[in-house]
Design a protein around this nucleic acid. Structure first.
Lengths: 201, 201
DNA sequence: ATAATAAAATACCGATTGGTACAAAAATGT
DNA sequence: ACATTTTTGTACCAATCGGTATTTTATTAT
């Protein structure tokens, strides 16, 4: 059991993890532009100085939210890309998944933050840039794996393919979040990414 | 000459066209999210009630700005699409133009308004939907003209092609506005739209 | 002159924003 | 009992948001 250090002072009761979970969900379904520190405090049932002590300010909060979202939502979604499926089949699965109804808020918080870099603090902006590059690298690696398997169009530079995949997936998520018809969004993305598949001839 | 109606009351001095021009430029380079009625009044050198008399409120202002932008920037840009160029050549020209440095604020105000439908009033939102459909129709007509000329991939439904062109052009404008490398944006779009061109074989 | 009318700006409204000074509360040490 | 330390919340700050009641200004009609 824990040694019970018998610290002086009022015992800590603020649950950082719970606040972060509430904040992440809030930013996710209301959108980063419509959510503020006041509303987060109200939803989490804590005072504003409490939130500032824990996260240092709005920038620190959104940066922490982004990290939390990345760790709990984005990174797990990369798992399947490393599995032993064909590139074309996996691509189709991703597009179907992105345009399907899920039990979570519509759209992707990371995509929303990327397309609304306004009123996001410098710390959050820097984090976005780092994670965006990491995301492109994952897609590029996925494409390169398809390359050695001969499952993709070898005429496309892997770096450009990673960039294209990132852009198109982000576009799909934005269109879905805007309420566009899901099947139209999916078909449009299928067309846009057909260039990555080997020629039909 | 005008009959000089000798109206009673203080003569009108507010220049609606000039205010609209100032407001449009302001929304264009600052972004619809960062610009408000107070700042527009300051830049135009008029009082707030004056702006409210002229446009009825923020929603009326942004709707008028959108109309002005559409008439002076967007619609003229449709002109070349009706010219006697090949579909592939024209497409390449559009992408080059979108990713080139121009003497106007970066990005497209219409694209910015579309991707930030938040905090835009109902009148402006309705206008956006109408103009978006009009834009897709223009692209679809362009594709259909290429179809009868045998210059495009006949396997693609024209409606889907119009949707794809609209989506990809908007994506290009957003990426440019975000400061992404122009050549990377252009090459990525070229790949995404290659599906509309006839097969190489 | 003076009344009537129309168009303008001054000066305000309540709500909300991100951020903080300061005091109350809850534990331990003496 | 009382001081010390740590954590928390109350109550405030100035700035900004969209919007408006009211007054001033400038003109014509009488």
């Amino acid at each position: 059991m824990t040694p019970l250090p018998k610290r002086r002072g009022r015992p800590k009761t603020l649950d950082r993890a719970r606040i972060l979970a509430v904040a992440t969900e809030s930013y996710w379904d209301e959108g980063p532009a419509s959510m503020g520190v006041n509303e987060v405090c109200r939803r989490a049932g804590i005072s504003k100085p409490g939130l500032y002590r824990e996260f240092g300010g709005e920038d620190g909060l959104t940066a922490a939210v982004l990290d939390h979202y990345w760790a709990t939502v984005i990174r797990p979604s990369f798992q399947p890309l490393a599995a032993e499926h064909s590139f074309a089949g996996m691509l189709d699965g991703v597009l179907t998944w992105l345009t399907s109804e899920r039990g979570v808020p519509a759209g992707c918080l990371f995509a929303k933050m990327r397309s609304a870099p306004v009123n996001l603090g410098p710390e959050t902006a820097a984090r976005i840039a780092v994670l965006r590059d990491e995301m492109r690298a994952v897609y590029q690696a996925w494409f390169e794996r398809g390359l050695v398997q001969g499952e993709v169009n070898a005429a496309v530079e892997p770096e450009l393919a990673g960039y294209l995949l990132d852009t198109q997936f982000k576009t799909v998520q934005m269109l879905v979040a805007e309420g566009e018809p899901h099947d139209l969004v999916r078909e449009q993305a299928r067309l846009a990414l057909a260039c990555l598949l080997p020629s039909e001839q």
